[in-house]
């Protein structure tokens, strides 16, 4: 009897994982569409500034490093969860959260700076697509941070149960996925923008 219930739980888990991977795939299509839009519009500067004149490489690089590190620390939290070290899980999640939050701060700071100097999304097709593409990633990061905060509280309260470990795994998939998307943003928007492609 116990064995059957275990079996059921296992298939439930695989279903969730497959479902989540398919969701990640749909999110890929979503970002692919946004990248396509950016590719079409990024020369339409309408007399406004181009990427070359706006983007600061060191700044984008700093953002990238922070996000990459956060991906690493979130991976560490997963290892801790496998080894059943509850406190370590919380510790690494907290670090990841701080890194993610500082990434988000940097991004918003950049947005704010652009709006302050008069280069908002209203200026051109290029800036509209820039704000939307990077902003959509930022929105995903925000959701990830919220998720992280909640799952930390749940882990503190309920411990490392099958349910919380499943949640942690999904969160990790999501967070790594956002990292991959950012690599693309960094390459397509900042790097290629910097060299004026």
């Amino acid at each position: 009897m116990d064995k059957t219930i275990d079996l059921v739980e296992n298939t439930e888990k695989t279903k969730t994982y497959i479902g989540f991977w398919i969701y990640i795939m749909t999110d890929c299509v979503l970002f692919a569409s946004l990248f396509a839009v950016y590719a079409v519009l990024h020369h339409n500067t309408n007399g406004g500034p181009s990427g070359q004149s706006l983007f600061s490489m060191p700044y984008a690089l700093a953002e990238t490093l922070i996000l990459l590190t956060s991906s690493f620390t979130s991976g560490l939290s997963m290892i801790a969860a496998r080894n059943n070290h509850k406190n370590k899980v919380i510790f690494w999640l907290a670090i990841t959260f701080l890194l993610g939050a500082s990434f988000l701060y940097l991004e918003l700071h950049e947005f704010n700076h652009l709006v302050q100097i008069g280069d908002s999304w209203r200026v051109s097709g290029f800036l509209s697509s820039y704000f939307t593409l990077v902003g959509t990633h930022g929105l995903h990061i925000t959701v990830g941070l919220l998720w992280m905060a909640i799952i930390s509280l749940v882990v503190i309260k309920r411990g490392l149960t099958k349910g919380t470990i499943k949640g942690l795994t999904l969160l990790n998939i999501f967070w790594h996925f956002l990292d991959v998307i950012w690599i693309f943003i960094f390459s397509v928007v900042y790097l290629m923008g910097h060299i004026g492609l």
Partner: peptide, 28 residues
């Protein structure tokens, strides 16, 4: 997902004055 993106961009044009699909301002 393509539909989601497309109509979101149209809404951003309408709400925030972006230029994705407007005739002017570098939209397409």
């Amino acid at each position: 997902p393509i539909l989601t993106v497309t109509i979101t961009l149209l809404y951003l044009d309408r709400l925030l004055g972006m230029h994705f699909f407007t005739g002017a301002g570098g939209g397409n």
